[in-house]
Design a protein around this nucleic acid. Structure first.
Lengths: 347, 347
DNA sequence: CGGCATCTATCGAACTTTTGGATAGATAGT
DNA sequence: ACTATCTATCCAAAAGTTCGATAGATGCCG
C-alpha cells in the first residue's frame, strides 16, 4: 500500500470522478486509473463503482474512508512534529463548523492564530450547524477539530468524542428607543417572574417572547440559528410576521432604530449598541452552547493542541484545559528492543 | 512521504541498527540507508543518531514514533476491512499483557479466536504487569489492545484510554485435608469478623493472613503476582519462610496435600480441586482486577472489536459491551461533494 | 435507434525511482 | 595501529510510474 494511492483515493472520493480528481492532483487520468487500480488489486476489493456518472465509493470504499483519512491526518501530524523540531509549525489544520461561528467567531481567532503560525495552512470547512453532522465529519476524518452548537439540555455525548464548552450565548432583542417607556412598565414584573435572568450582564429592559411577537422580527443572517428563534417565536404566537433577513449587525440595529421591527441577535453581537435602540433581555432566554469537538486521537496533532490553546486564551471562561505543545505522551527511555525481544507469535 | 519509509523507520527503531533492520526487511543495507535518508531529507530533521553502536532515535525520531505506528495500525485496519468485505479477516492484531495473563488466561481465548479467524495473525507481546507500562505500549503504538492488572483501589484512569474490567480475581489458600478440623474451629468466628467475605462462591473454610504464615508458602509461578502476595504475607508476619516456586496448579496442590505448605492461587485456578486438599478463603481478601485497555481509535480496528467480543463471551460478567463487527461509524449518504464545495481557505 | 458526449481502462514508450553490490568513511575496542 | 562493526555514497541494472493515444462502456437525446 502506498500513501499516494490513499491520497488519490480521497481525491476521487471528494471529486466523485476520476477525470476531475486527476485534474486536481495534476496527474493524467490514466495514471490515476492505474493508481486506484493497483490499490484495489492489492486489497482485493473494488473501491469505486464507475460509470458514465463518474465514480462513487462502494460499501467497502466507504468502510475504509475514515481509516485512510486517519492515516493522512497522522502523516500531517508527522510533518508538524518535524517542523516543531525546527521551531516552526508547518502542515495544515482543518476546522469544521457552521455558518454563524465560521463567519462571526472563528475568523478573528484564526486570523490571529495564523499570524502566530504563518506556515500553518488553516482550512475552514463550513457545514450544517447540528452537532451530529459535525461529529460525523470528525468520524469520517473530514476535519481535525469541529466547533458545533448544541442546546443547553443536550450537552452530554455518548461516545468518547472530546468536547468542551467554549461559550454559552443568549440572544437579546433590539428595539427602538421609543419603546423604552412602554417596556419600563413591564420589566420589573417580568424580572420578578423570571428571577434566574438576574445576572451581571443584565440589560435595562426585559421582554417576554409573547410580547416580542408584537414586532416584526428582523433576523440576522450571520450568527443566529434562524430556525431556533423562529420556532421559539412560533411557540409564543401562532403566526410569525414575515421575516427580514439582514447580514450586518449594525444594519439590523439601524432597521430597529427606524421602528421597522425587532432584531434578535446574540448578546455579544449587540456591542456597541446603536444610539437609537435599546437592548432588551428576553425572559426564558433562549441559549445555545458553542462547543469544541474532537476525537481523542486529534489531541496528538500539534496544531490542534495549539488551536485549542488559542481558543482557551480567547475564551478563558471555557472548560478547555491548556495543552502542552510538545508531545503530550511521555516517551520513556524504555528501549523498544526489550519489548521486541519478548515478543512471540501464536500460530 | 511513503509508507515503505515508515515501515523501515519502525524496523530500525525496533532493531536498533540499520544493518539488522535491513536483514529483517529483506533488503540491502544501502537501500535502507537511502530510504531513511530520503525520509529525513523530506522532513528536514534527523531521525536517528548513528554510530558504531548502530542507530538510536533522536528526540524528533521519538516524537514521531507514535504517529508512524498509528499510520501503520490503520493500514492494517484497511486490510482488515478489505478482507471483511470478502467475508474473512486478514491482518494482524497485537495484544500486550503481562506474564500471568499471557500464560494462563489469554492462550485458550486466543487459540479459540484463532480457530475462528484463521487468517488473522495474533501477536502476544509480554511486558511488565503495571498498568502504566501497558498504557505506554498503547500510546506508543506497540500494540492494539492491552490487558493489564490493577488493584481494586486504582480503577480510575485520568486520560481517555478506554478500559473495561474483565474479571476480579481473589486468591484462595490451599491446605491439606488434615487441617480441616483445626480450621473448622476458627472459620465461623472469622466469617463473623469479616462479613463482606460472604458470597456465593464461598469456600467451606476461612483463614486469616496471620494464620497463613504458620505454613510454608508455595508460590505459583504462573498466575499470581508473587510480589503482591509476598508483600501481604510480610505485612502479616515479620519474616516469610522460604518460598517454593511451582509452575503447575495441580502440582502445587499436590505439594499442599503432602503437607508441604500452603498454596496461594487465584480462585479460578483451584478448580478442579485436588482430593487431598481443602480450599480456604482468605479473609481481608487480596484481589486484583484484570482489565482490558485500548485507545479509542483502536475500536476502529475490526479485529480489535472481534477480540473484545470474544473476551466478552468468555467473561460474560465483565463490563465489556458487545461491538458491531461492521463499521461502528454510520456512514450517511451525505456526499463529500457537498462538504467540499463549501470549503474555503484562510490565507 | 444511432450518434454524441463523457466517463474509465489499457497499451506501450519515455521517464523516474528504487535497488543492491562494491567501496569508502567513521568510530570504538583491543 | 589494527580490527571489527557500523552507515553513507556511487553507479549501473531493475523496477515502477507516468503520459498521450486509443479503445471500450454507458447514458442522453434527437
Amino acid at each position: 500500500m502506498k500513501l499516494q494511492q490513499l491520497r488519490a483515493f480521497v481525491k476521487v472520493l471528494e471529486s466523485g470522478s476520476f477525470s476531475e480528481a486527476a485534474l486536481e492532483l495534476g496527474i493524467s487520468q490514466s495514471t490515476l486509473s492505474y493508481t486506484i487500480g493497483e490499490l484495489e488489486r492489492e486489497l482485493g476489493i473494488k473501491l469505486f463503482e464507475r460509470g458514465r456518472f463518474g465514480a462513487v465509493a462502494t460499501d467497502a470504499g466507504r468502510a475504509i474512508e475514515s481509516h485512510v483519512r486517519t492515516m493522512l491526518r497522522f502523516e500531517n501530524a508527522i510533518f508538524q512534529e518535524a517542523s516543531l523540531a525546527k521551531a516552526s509549525i508547518e502542515g495544515y489544520l482543518r476546522v469544521a463548523t457552521f455558518r454563524s461561528v465560521a463567519s462571526q467567531i472563528l475568523p478573528s481567532i484564526m486570523a490571529a492564530f495564523k499570524r502566530q503560525f504563518p506556515d500553518l495552512v488553516l482550512e475552514l470547512i463550513e457545514m450544517e450547524c447540528g452537532r451530529d453532522a459535525l461529529k460525523q465529519a470528525l468520524d469520517r476524518g473530514h476535519c481535525d477539530v469541529a466547533v458545533s452548537q448544541v442546546s443547553e439540555d443536550e450537552l452530554d455525548i455518548e461516545d468518547n468524542t472530546l468536547h468542551w464548552e467554549l461559550m454559552r450565548e443568549s440572544y437579546v432583542a433590539i428595539l427602538p428607543k421609543s419603546q423604552a417607556a412602554k417596556l419600563e412598565a413591564t420589566t420589573a414584573a417580568l424580572r420578578a417572574a423570571y428571577p434566574e435572568q438576574a445576572r451581571a450582564e443584565q440589560a435595562d429592559y426585559a421582554i417576554s417572547w409573547r410580547q416580542l411577537t408584537d414586532y416584526a422580527p428582523i433576523m440576522h443572517g450571520g450568527h443566529n440559528c434562524g430556525e431556533l428563534i423562529q420556532a421559539r417565536l412560533e411557540r409564543a404566537l401562532v403566526t410569525v410576521p414575515a421575516i427580514q433577513l439582514v447580514r450586518d449587525d449594525f444594519t439590523s440595529m439601524e432597521l430597529s432604530a427606524q421602528g421597522l421591527g425587532v432584531s434578535v441577535m446574540p448578546r455579544l453581537a449587540s456591542y456597541p449598541l446603536h444610539d437609537g435602540v435599546i437592548r432588551v433581555d428576553i425572559v426564558e432566554p433562549l441559549r445555545r452552547v458553542i462547543e469544541v469537538l474532537l476525537l481523542p486521537s486529534s489531541l496528538k496533532i500539534p496544531a490542534a493542541r495549539l488551536l485549542l490553546n488559542a481558543l482557551k486564551q480567547r475564551f478563558p471562561e471555557s472548560s478547555l484545559p491548556t495543552f502542552n505543545v510538545r508531545q503530550p505522551v511521555k516517551v520513556e527511555p524504555l528501549t523498544n528492543n526489550e519489548a521486541v525481544s519478548y515478543r512471540r507469535f501464536i500460530n
